[in-house]
Amino acid sequence: MAKPKDPDPRAILRGGLPDRYLTPDDIADMFGVPLETVYQWRRKRTGPPGFRIGKHVRYDPSDVRAYVSQRKSARQSAA
């Protein structure tokens, strides 16, 4: 039996986020940016807020959703 293909992470972002904590790789895939950009956002505190679980960085889907909403509303109010 073939393993089902994982959906496009950007489609997940449009259709609703998964019910699990997201990895930096997930964030990079969703936003279509290099992984290093995600780490730069974290260092500069400009991207979605992440948190550490031991040595691993994770992102809460509700925080990512809020970040996207904030960016969209900021863009609309600037126009």
Rank of each mutant, 00 (worst) to 15 (best):
36 E>Y: 05
19 D>Y: 00
24 P>S: 14
43 R>Y: 14
38 V>Q: 03
72 K>H: 06
79 A>E: 09
3 K>R: 11
16 G>W: 12
77 S>H: 00
67 Y>C: 03
26 D>G: 08
1 M>G: 12
18 P>I: 11
47 G>I: 07
44 K>Y: 01
8 D>I: 01
33 V>L: 07
62 S>C: 01
13 L>C: 01
79 A>K: 12
57 V>L: 13
65 R>A: 09
37 T>Q: 15
51 F>D: 10
23 T>L: 12
40 Q>W: 14
21 Y>C: 08
29 D>E: 15
71 R>F: 00
71 R>D: 02
52 R>E: 04
45 R>E: 09
17 L>N: 02
59 Y>L: 10
27 I>P: 04
9 P>Y: 10
65 R>K: 14
1 M>L: 09
75 R>H: 11
77 S>C: 02
28 A>W: 04
14 R>E: 11
25 D>W: 07
42 R>G: 00
46 T>R: 14
67 Y>D: 05
75 R>S: 08
64 V>D: 00
45 R>F: 04
5 K>S: 11
53 I>F: 13
7 P>N: 05
63 D>I: 03
39 Y>F: 15
32 G>T: 02
7 P>T: 09
68 V>P: 07
55 K>P: 00
54 G>Q: 09
63 D>F: 05
6 D>P: 05
78 A>L: 13
36 E>M: 13
59 Y>G: 01
63 D>Y: 01
53 I>E: 06
13 L>W: 03
70 Q>P: 04
66 A>K: 15
23 T>C: 09
37 T>V: 14
69 S>R: 15
62 S>P: 01
68 V>E: 06
8 D>A: 04
4 P>A: 13
76 Q>C: 03
16 G>V: 03
32 G>Y: 02
68 V>A: 04
28 A>Q: 03
43 R>M: 09
24 P>F: 01
45 R>W: 00
44 K>P: 01
51 F>V: 04
49 P>K: 15
21 Y>P: 05
39 Y>N: 13
73 S>W: 06
40 Q>L: 11
75 R>K: 13
18 P>S: 14
11 A>W: 12
35 L>D: 08
47 G>K: 02
28 A>C: 12
55 K>G: 12
54 G>E: 11
43 R>T: 07
33 V>M: 09
45 R>D: 08
17 L>G: 08
29 D>K: 10
57 V>F: 14
17 L>E: 05
22 L>I: 00
24 P>N: 06
8 D>E: 11
68 V>N: 03
78 A>C: 01
52 R>F: 09
70 Q>R: 15
76 Q>D: 12
26 D>S: 06
57 V>R: 06
21 Y>H: 08
16 G>Y: 12
12 I>Y: 00
34 P>K: 14
22 L>Q: 01
77 S>K: 11
49 P>Q: 15
43 R>C: 08
52 R>Q: 05
29 D>L: 06
72 K>W: 01
76 Q>E: 14
43 R>W: 03
21 Y>G: 09
39 Y>G: 02
57 V>M: 11
63 D>C: 07
37 T>M: 14
7 P>H: 04
25 D>Y: 07
25 D>N: 11
19 D>P: 03
38 V>R: 04
59 Y>P: 07
15 G>A: 15
38 V>T: 10
41 W>L: 10
44 K>R: 15
64 V>C: 02
34 P>F: 08
66 A>G: 09
44 K>S: 10
25 D>C: 07
69 S>K: 13
21 Y>R: 03
53 I>M: 00
41 W>G: 00
